[in-house]
Deep mutational scan, measured.
Amino acid sequence: KEQQNAFYEILHLPNLTEEQRNGFIQSLKDDPSVSKEILAEAKKLNDAQA
């Protein structure tokens, strides 16, 4: 469930490039146990690119 939530949120971050988004999603698939950390990174990058 946590992985699904992170997946959904990353898909809807407006400021990520397609490449960045795909990278985060691939990381989620590779290691779902760190989905919280991956989501935090994605949000940080999204904010930095706002």
Rank of each mutant, 00 (worst) to 15 (best):
A6M: 06
Y8M: 11
N46V: 02
N5K: 09
V34H: 08
L28W: 07
L28S: 02
A48Y: 08
F7E: 10
S33L: 10
N46D: 03
K1M: 15
F24H: 01
A40T: 11
Q20H: 02
D31Q: 10
Q20A: 03
D30Q: 13
R21M: 06
I25G: 02
Q26A: 11
F7M: 13
K43T: 06
E41G: 06
R21F: 03
E37C: 08
V34E: 08
K44Q: 09
L16R: 00
Q4N: 05
E18L: 10
N46A: 08
K1N: 14
Q20F: 02
Q26D: 05
F24K: 00
A40D: 06
L13N: 01
D31L: 04
N22D: 10
A6T: 10
E9S: 13
K36M: 11
P14I: 08
D47K: 12
N22M: 13
R21A: 05
K36T: 06
A50F: 12
N46Q: 02
Q3H: 08
L16V: 02
N5D: 11
L16K: 00
Q20Y: 01
A42L: 01
E18Y: 13
S33W: 11
D47H: 13
H12R: 15
Q49R: 05
N5M: 14
E19K: 09
N5V: 12
A48C: 07
E19F: 14
R21Q: 05
N46R: 02
I25K: 03
L11A: 10
N5W: 14
F7W: 14
F24A: 02
Q49M: 08
D30K: 14
N15P: 00
K44C: 04
D31P: 02
I38Y: 03
L45I: 09
G23K: 14
E41M: 13
N46I: 01
N15M: 06
I38R: 03
L11V: 05
E41H: 10
A6F: 09
N22Y: 14
E9A: 14
R21L: 04
E18D: 07
E19S: 08
F7V: 13
D31N: 12
P14T: 11
N15V: 02
G23C: 11
I38Q: 02
A42D: 00
G23A: 14
K44E: 09
H12V: 08
N46K: 01
D31W: 12
P14Y: 15
K1D: 15
S27N: 11
L11W: 15
K36L: 13
S35T: 13
P14Q: 13
K1L: 12
H12K: 15
Y8N: 06
K29T: 12
K29E: 06
Q26E: 06
Q3I: 04
